[in-house]
Write a protein that binds this DNA or RNA. Structure first.
Lengths: 153, 153
DNA sequence: TGAATTAAAAGAATAATATTCTATGAACGA
DNA sequence: TCGTTCATAGAATATTATTCTTTTAATTCA
């Protein structure tokens, strides 16, 4: 399954920091010629180690400067209600991440909005519309200390 | 500040989903020729709307399949202790995100590790080494419902 | 309203890079 | 030792990025 060597890991680490590196630049950094590097990257994509390439945007500049972690419990835990909740959540643009979690709550949502007024709107008009939510507890991000956008390898 | 038109937003949305699109492909999707699209992307980078381009890796395949949200309080809240904590946290590879948050805890960490054994190791050998941690409360991710890797625009 | 000015876009030309192809050399097993 | 396999290097080609020039559209101001 995981048949990667040290060079593959180095390539992955470089690309998850900056995917604008050319094959030639990558090749220099791992001390190979362009061909093997090109083939390694293609193989890493094909085998699913690289899921996709994306642009990372500046949330602040795009008026989504407020991040809130929203902990949610469901009233009941039947399969139907769970599925319905998941379906509804996926449809809400402001929810950028959603996890089924252990502990006091059932789901943890990461929500990105412009400001507190918009978060209020999110809670009232989006969460409020979803049935079977038992409770919602919001944790507001005051400062971002670290955000790697990467997998620690 | 934010002087983007509808086409800029469309380009940003396309690129934060797939930055492998060529200028020509982007141009087709927004009904322009390659030149203005090329210039728009460069402008979006230059003005900071696009922070960087990265590869998104598959955590599971890279043996980092366990994600844990770790809530932390500090024993004291002096500036020195806070700075020291931040410095220590940034140095820990497994902590992929860290936020200063409101509520019962001071910091929220997203931690990515292989499995529970490695998380135990993280708590004992990494968190355990950091001074002035008052309490740590772990929330384990059992399932990923949604993960957009993008800003909702 | 209409000419002048500016900004944005199109199209063509060039430069750089990605991608493919062929050949070389090392590692391994018979 | 010989033949086989594999990864790499180097060269050739195809695509794409990037720049330059021209055209169009929009805006401003008389």
């Amino acid at each position: 399954m995981n048949d990667l060597d040290r060079i593959d890991y180095k390539i992955l680490n470089l690309l998850q920091t900056n995917s604008n590196l050319t094959t030639k630049e990558l090749a220099n950094k791992v001390n190979l010629s362009t061909t093997p590097v090109f083939e390694r990257v293609k193989r890493l994509e094909k085998n699913g180690y690289i899921k996709k390439f994306v642009a990372v945007l500046d949330a602040e500049k795009l008026d989504k400067g407020l991040t809130v972690f929203c902990n949610i419990t469901l009233k009941q835990h039947t399969r139907e209600i769970g599925h319905k909740f998941v379906k509804d959540i996926i449809a809400i643009k402001e929810v950028t991440e959603c996890y089924n979690v252990s502990g006091d709550y059932d789901f943890l949502l990461k929500v990105m909005v412009k400001d507190m007024k918009h978060y209020q709107d999110f809670v009232l008009n989006h969460l409020g519309e979803i049935k079977n939510i038992g409770s919602a507890h919001s944790t507001f991000v005051m400062g971002e200390i670290k955000n790697t956008y990467s997998v620690p390898i």
